[in-house]
Design a protein around this nucleic acid. Structure first.
Lengths: 342, 342
DNA sequence: CTGAAAGCGCTTACAG
DNA sequence: CTGAAAGCGCTTACAG
């Protein structure tokens, strides 16, 4: 490590000496704690400014808060997370909190390791996005550190959840497609290895899909394929659907990213999009608007999810213990991929 | 904060008591420091295991290393960063180091704030990807914390750099296009507000573009437009290029993400891709392979960049002071967007 | 090879 | 309203 001389560092003590007060007083000003006169506060702040004082997070972590929030993202591939992150940033703009991100790689072991790393570093709370971990695993962690979870459907008492109504989202897709005359509608979902786990967004979207298909009297057409989140796997599943008997007229994909792969396969198979095959995505990310995709999708306003999650997490850090569960309403944005040309 | 009883925490002292040794001995085992007998080490490790001991990062940060590396990403939008991150992870897999990410939002003030936040948290080093900050700003920070920088062309002595040969990349694009008969080739670059700054990858790619155009005797066709990294701005610039006099036959875009927008505009203007207009991107991200894009692009192997950068950073943390500068060689991957059909 | 002691920069009761 | 003192969990010389 680069040697950092002792004399270099401006500590609470340097500030205290400069301002002619005690270290305890400086600490109080730092934390906006009660019981300091305006004169003292002003003097201390002037000294901090003058000396370029910066609090030492590790030292604060030894006794109190670190003012650091950990955010766990599944990956940095899905552009939907951009929206969530910008909502989180907006919520934290005027606070002392700083966010640092971990990338879980859609992998339970990695998520567990990140949670521990964040706890070891005395983070004040964790915002967990799209966990692969089970409810039980999250609950265990949430007993040790304040936590809010986005895109995970569970009414657990030890943490807050913030979700889009994914059942409704799935239903909206089917309703839209049936209105436009599509009947043989398949779904392409995510392979999680836990088909019975209803906490995932994909499971919820699937419930909505099945329900709406039944309500529309299309029960016989229900078909759910699933694939892992790799190009190879997704394209394989799409080909399998499209080359099998009773080729679907439409495919509902659990996220946009997957729908783009399906569009690619459709083109390779020389199917006309919307004519031979409608494709619908989820998340309404930036790629949907590109003319070569023109992808119908569900908008679940990631910004709102991120903003509300950050707000709930901070409330919890400040002492709230009752659990809160927020649900926002999605809407469908229709584009060319589900619009037949005449 | 959730109350954490004193008795709860397993510290170095608890382990020491359990193993019947001193706290100093436990600390040495923890750090793999020299001067501990095998017997003692084994006893201590057994106790750690038994008690589920986890080191307290903040306390370690007070005296020594935190074993935390900060990674600053410009955004989580450009899929190219996925490759870099996976290289970083690969390099760190078997080490004690943990990475935490900050998102700079392509914004100098935000980058500065992140650097400070990472230093305040006593991170051991920073891996800075695609900085918007100037060389002078980075140098100032690198004097206070070990740093390696990806995608920033500067032979600064206080930090290491890891780059793709972007000049060559730009030249490869032009050579490829001229071989295929395109002559009026424009470039769509990034608006940084600092046209004279040659440290950015876009400036380097532009140099390569200009050089190759001159060498091919196409100097009169040189035209560089630039746009900020928003869909709106990019589409505006693309329209301006394509609707102006002397419409280019090909557009070289500084990154894939931008090229996808150009493809979209081309389609809206009913131009045939490759026939009326060739489009080339940079980074060879996953989207290039989709049939609806089929985008020719430059592969700069982000994984290698990430892996080497992590390796250099750790060397520097361990004490190296001389600067190192790595350059990897890019290659062009040809696809349909620059292939005329007969 | 092993351990006792000091100290890193803060916060937290507690006393004045 | 203000400050002296103890202590958070480690690491670092230093002595044995």
């Amino acid at each position: 490590m680069a040697p950092r001389q002792k004399s270099d560092r401006v500590t609470i003590r340097t500030v205290a000496e400069d301002a002619g007060v005690s270290a305890a007083a400086v600490s109080k000003v730092l934390r906006d704690a009660y019981g300091v006169s305006d004169t003292l506060r002003a003097r201390v702040q002037a000294s901090m400014q003058k000396l370029g004082y910066r609090p030492h997070a590790a030292a604060r972590g030894m006794r109190g808060q670190t003012y650091t929030l950990g955010v766990i993202l599944p990956d940095i591939h899905n552009p939907f997370f951009t929206d969530i992150v910008s909502g989180v940033n907006a919520a934290l703009e005027r606070t002392q909190y700083q966010t640092l991100f971990g990338i879980g790689q859609s992998n339970v072991a990695m998520e567990q390791r990140l949670i521990e790393a964040m706890m070891d570093r005395q983070m004040d709370g964790i915002l967990f996005i799209g966990p692969r971990m089970t409810q039980a695993g999250i609950e265990a962690a949430a007993k040790r550190i304040p936590m809010a979870v986005i895109a995970h459907h569970a009414r657990a008492t030890s943490y807050d959840t913030i979700n889009d109504d994914d059942v409704l989202g799935g239903m909206l897709v089917v309703q839209h497609l049936t209105e436009r005359g599509y009947r043989n509608i398949a779904m392409l979902s995510l392979e999680t290895g836990r088909p019975d786990d209803r906490t995932t967004v994909t499971a919820q979207r699937e419930i909505g899909y099945r329900r709406a298909m039944e309500e529309a009297g299309l029960k016989r057409f229900i078909k759910v394929a699933s694939a892992e989140q790799t190009s190879r796997d997704v394209q394989g599943a799409a080909r399998h659907l499209l080359e099998g008997r009773s080729r679907p007229e439409a495919i509902f994909c659990w996220t946009d990213f997957i729908a783009l792969e399906v569009l690619s396969v459709a083109r390779e198979l020389r199917l006309s999009v919307a004519g031979d095959l409608a494709v619908v995505g989820y998340d309404n990310t930036g790629y949907c608007d590109l003319a070569q995709n023109s992808l119908t999708s569900i908008d679940q306003s990631g910004q709102v999810l991120g903003l509300q999650a950050a707000r709930l997490l901070i409330e919890r850090i400040k002492g709230r213990h009752a659990d809160e569960h927020l649900v926002v309403t999605p809407r469908l944005v229709a584009r060319g991929s589900s619009t037949r040309r005449h």
